[in-house]
Design a protein around this nucleic acid. Sequence first.
DNA 1: ATAGGCATGTAAGCAGTTACATGATTTA
DNA 2: TAAATCATGTAACTGCTTACATGCCTAT
Lengths: 191, 191
Amino acid sequence: MALRHAVLAALLDGESSGYQLTKIFDVGVSNFWYAAPQQLYAELAKLESEGLVAGHVVVQQGRPNKRVFTVTEAGIGELAAFAAAPPKPLLIRDDLAVRVHAVDLLEPAPVIAQLRERAEEAAAKLALFEKMLVHLRGDLDEESFLRHGERVGPYLTCLGGCRLEREIRDWCLQSARTLRERAAHTRRELS
Amino acid sequence: MALRHAVLAALLDGESSGYQLTKIFDVGVSNFWYAAPQQLYAELAKLESEGLVAGHVVVQQGRPNKRVFTVTEAGIGELAAFAAAPPKPLLIRDDLAVRVHAVDLLEPAPVIAQLRERAEEAAAKLALFEKMLVHLRGDLDEESFLRHGERVGPYLTCLGGCRLEREIRDWCLQSARTLRERAAHTRRELS
DNA sequence: ATAGGCATGTAAGCAGTTACATGATTTA
DNA sequence: TAAATCATGTAACTGCTTACATGCCTAT
């Protein structure tokens, strides 16, 4: 029981369909919660059967109809209970860092390539989050918005996302550079 | 099949027992891989049965005996194959950030308390990682070590850990401060 | 036409979590 | 004598991942 609260929190930003949620978890909320598309459909069905979200059909022209979901009163209650409980530790699993940790016994070339790719992804996400910040705060500057804005929750998590992606980008670039220089040095020694 | 590679990578830093691994995954490697103690015993048994690690008993005085594990040639091969494959995306799940995202509809007080506690934990981990860096590089300065040191993998992941914990600490403190100031302002309005 | 985006699921299998269980030794 | 640390597991359950399945509409 963990994804449910992330879904409820995401739905507070406005009702959305399962498909839209997959997009949100792919970018907007991805800085603090990873979830696969199939999980979201399953979780929404569960939440609806428990009365924590309510769904209704939206008819669209030119596109298939969709069912959008809203958090119910009971859903808010669930979130409130969750927020008062002690938080679970941050869960992080980074496939790429495992490679870096073991890199001294490995071929460095593919790891370097992977680090560069990850750095680019992080840079792209950072740019996206920074745009989101501007959008969220409207015509206020950051300080005023944090003081008087209506909803700061999403803004704060987005700030967290910026911090995270910036560090990922820089760490990947630094690591790639270090490994490349060492590889060049090793080649010179061998020749 | 994912934890296995993290375990193999951790064992490259030196043979250890299941119990010692639980300590390593609780601190040293925790910046890029979370794993519960029970997982590690199970995974070690599996890895041993597949010949990727080899265990032998170490007799101790004053303490129960333990079985320590080393990565085998086959284990290195497994790691090499893993490193060449495309990495899975970073998996992150942060219970506390979910609360922050939803905080505008919640009691802010417990969330603020949780943010402060998390900030302290992050500060403690940061201090630990910084000590580890000094220990790893011995009497070299960072630049020389990154260029000519024997094993840079663990040093690079440790640098990543520092970056991560520093940002977590600062984000938690910034968020807590923002929420506290808003709460104070709201109280004044009500009175 | 065909590729891509929109839209929603099911089913099987694997990985991870929670709770339980045991026992020795050291420190307060 | 109680709590903490060292040491290693099992069993039941839940949650997550991977693969499969379907179908419409739009843009190229």
